[in-house]
Amino acid sequence: MSNESVDELPSPATRGLGSLRLRLTLALPLLNALAVAVFEWSLAGELPNAQALARLTWLVVLLSAAQLLLVELWMLRPLRHLAAGCEAMESQCATPLPNDGLGAAPRLDGELDRIGHAMLRARDSLWQQEQSASELQRELSEQRRQLDHAQATLEANRRELASLARVDTLTGIANQRVFDEALRREFKRAQRERSLLAVAVLDLDQFRQFNRVHGKAAGDAALQRLAELLGTRFKRDTDLVARLGGEEFVALLPGFGMAEAQGVLESLREEWRALRLPDGDGQLTLSIGLAAASPAHPYLSAQALLQAADEALYIAKHAGRDRLSLAA
């Protein structure tokens, strides 16, 4: 082998730098992938999907490329210069040193200082990256806490809205929406089981005039008082009382025929007449229309049953008020 071939072979220092570069190229992506996976797991608590995995892969590639570039600029390049200087010194060992040969030592010290400064800068850069990652994790944790709080508030508001959509806000009893659903359900059950079902529509007589004389507050108190009376009178699990709007209420009485419902409603009307109103003045009477479905007296639909009770209430109003009228 000629001397020229020997000179072209890479030196041990060059081979060492190449080996170091190869190890860094293999190790940094693995370390970054592990760090990013642990960080994502600590945030999400579950395995990433395909889209998130692709995003993490690009993040690892970019982070590894940046770190390799920093290592190349701040550590490997000075080491290459140092290796070249060492090789030059070794090649000159066999020949007498010139008069200025003592200048190699200061140059070597300068290279070592540069390497030390490069390693310090690399360490500072890694520390800053760790601080940035910690700050990012704190921000994400705070955002997650705020998101959980917002979701809890939204759920509470949703439940409140759902409750308001099914409850009359003034009296606290069911509203017309709830009554309509219950009427259809109980009517189908009565048809299927051939059982009884009574519907009563109740209306306070001359309520608007009462409001004009005594004020809206007294009128609202009277509506609340009637709702309380209905709740205490009809308290079976199957009974339902609701406010249809204004001064009009309704009672749904499964299992009651015309005679049973008539007796209870007459008693209710007498009890209401005996009550004193909140302001102690004036008197509100109650008109009631009653309809009942039975195998002997069926109705075609739930709406037809309710309409029969409404027509009976109309008759009670035009017959002098303060009375109970039965559907034909």
Rank of each mutant, 00 (worst) to 15 (best):
2 S>Q: 09
2 S>Y: 08
2 S>W: 07
2 S>C: 03
4 E>T: 12
5 S>R: 12
5 S>W: 12
6 V>G: 09
6 V>A: 14
9 L>H: 04
10 P>F: 01
11 S>Y: 00
16 G>Q: 07
18 G>A: 11
19 S>G: 15
23 R>A: 10
25 T>I: 15
27 A>Q: 05
33 A>K: 02
33 A>I: 04
37 A>P: 04
41 W>V: 09
46 E>T: 13
47 L>R: 13
47 L>Q: 09
47 L>Y: 09
50 A>N: 07
58 W>K: 04
73 L>A: 14
73 L>K: 09
76 L>H: 03
77 R>S: 14
78 P>I: 07
80 R>F: 04
83 A>N: 04
89 M>L: 15
93 C>K: 13
93 C>V: 14
93 C>A: 13
94 A>Y: 04
95 T>K: 11
96 P>E: 14
97 L>I: 02
98 P>S: 15
103 G>N: 12
105 A>G: 14
106 P>N: 10
108 L>R: 06
108 L>P: 00
110 G>W: 05
110 G>R: 02
114 R>P: 01
115 I>L: 14
115 I>T: 04
118 A>I: 06
119 M>D: 10
123 R>L: 14
124 D>A: 12
126 L>Y: 06
126 L>E: 11
143 Q>V: 13
144 R>I: 10
144 R>H: 11
148 D>Q: 15
151 Q>N: 15
154 L>F: 10
157 N>H: 11
159 R>A: 12
162 A>W: 00
163 S>K: 12
163 S>F: 12
167 V>E: 09
168 D>L: 07
168 D>T: 03
169 T>M: 15
170 L>M: 07
172 G>C: 08
174 A>T: 03
180 D>A: 01
181 E>L: 08
185 R>Q: 08
186 E>K: 06
188 K>W: 08
189 R>T: 08
189 R>L: 02
190 A>V: 06
192 R>L: 02
196 L>K: 03
198 A>M: 03
199 V>N: 02
200 A>K: 05
204 L>T: 03
205 D>N: 05
206 Q>S: 11
207 F>K: 07
208 R>C: 12
209 Q>F: 05
209 Q>S: 10
210 F>D: 01
211 N>H: 09
211 N>T: 04
219 G>I: 01
222 A>T: 05
222 A>F: 03
225 R>L: 13
226 L>H: 05
230 L>I: 04
233 R>W: 03
236 R>M: 07
241 V>L: 06
241 V>I: 04
243 R>K: 05
245 G>K: 07
247 E>D: 07
251 A>E: 07
251 A>M: 01
264 V>A: 03
265 L>E: 02
265 L>V: 02
266 E>G: 00
270 E>P: 03
275 L>E: 14
276 R>N: 14
277 L>K: 00
280 G>Q: 09
281 D>R: 13
283 Q>W: 09
288 I>A: 02
288 I>G: 09
289 G>K: 10
294 S>K: 04
296 A>V: 11
299 Y>L: 08
300 L>C: 12
301 S>Q: 09
303 Q>G: 15
307 Q>H: 14
307 Q>F: 02
310 D>R: 05
311 E>I: 15
312 A>G: 00
312 A>V: 05
314 Y>P: 06
314 Y>V: 00
318 H>Y: 10
321 R>K: 13
323 R>W: 13
326 L>N: 01
327 A>Y: 13
327 A>K: 06
328 A>Q: 13
